[in-house]
């Protein structure tokens, strides 16, 4: 208990002192996760909308596959990404391995099924008559899509928050594609793994506390959105 208590006090001191290693890891984590969620939103929300509103052969199979990919192991994405970005890989000449760009690409692939699948559910949950009403009022297909998305805005934001939570908490991709380089690609999760293995438990604990705080903030955000959505009768 004494060891844990001492580590906890040291962790609080590191946070209070704005330790450069802590700040750097937090900054990298947030930067990579935000970029990933933006990329996943740009691709996943329209894809989810199209999947919900279009009829095409094999739709049930594709939907099941997408839902399965929500549980994609991060190390598998890391492995595939490594194969693509490594020196001899097809994207090797770009020199992106062990850079934040490679991490963003990997995390985007990881959370894309989450964002797409939850966007699909969000669109499906909105009365199909919303789209039809927009069309009867003279909306172009894109304007009708906009009307549907405004109706389900809280549900789409929940999808993004869930994707962000998955991205910021993952370790496999950050480790394999980022390389855990201090001050460059070291994230909170990779730093926790490293510092704990070195016996620097206090630093790991400090980062763990910040990570938990971020996860808590994301969850509070999701719950407040769901509450607003419920109040609004969605």
């Amino acid at each position: 208990m004494g060891y844990l208590g001492t580590s906890f006090s040291e962790a609080l001191a590191l946070i209070a002192a704005a330790d450069p290693d802590v700040i750097s890891a937090v900054g990298t984590s947030v930067y990579v996760s935000v970029c990933s969620i933006i990329a996943a939103a740009v691709i996943g929300i329209p894809l989810g909308y199209l999947m919900a509103t279009r009829v095409f052969p094999g739709k049930a199979i594709v939907t099941t596959l997408l839902q399965t990919l929500m549980a994609l192991p991060t190390v598998v994405v890391g492995l595939i990404g490594y194969a693509l970005f490594t020196h001899n890989g097809p994207l090797g000449p770009l020199g992106l391995l062990y850079t934040p760009v490679a991490m963003i690409a990997g995390e985007t692939i990881l959370i894309l099924p989450v964002v797409t699948s939850l966007s699909l559910s969000a669109t499906s949950s909105i009365n199909a008559e919303v789209r039809e009403t927009a069309l009867t009022l003279g909306a172009k297909p894109l304007q009708a899509a906009g009307a549907v998305m405004r109706e389900g805005r809280f549900a789409y934001m929940t999808a993004l928050a869930a994707g962000f939570g998955r991205a910021i908490g993952e370790v496999g991709i950050a480790m394999m594609l980022g390389g855990n380089i201090r001050g460059a690609t070291r994230t909170m999760t990779t730093a926790i793994a490293l510092e704990t293995s070195k016996g620097e438990f206090a630093l790991g604990l400090a980062l763990g506390m910040i990570l938990l705080t971020v996860a808590l903030a994301v969850n509070v955000f999701i719950r407040s959105l769901q509450a607003r959505s419920g109040e609004a009768g969605e």
Partner: peptide
């Protein structure tokens, strides 16, 4: 105009403005 019209999640004015805005 449908039998059970769908109103968008906005104000009454916003609903009536929709067709004009598009």
């Amino acid at each position: 105009l449908a039998q059970k019209p769908v109103l968008f999640r906005t104000t009454v004015l916003g609903n009536v403005m929709f067709g004009l805005r598009v």
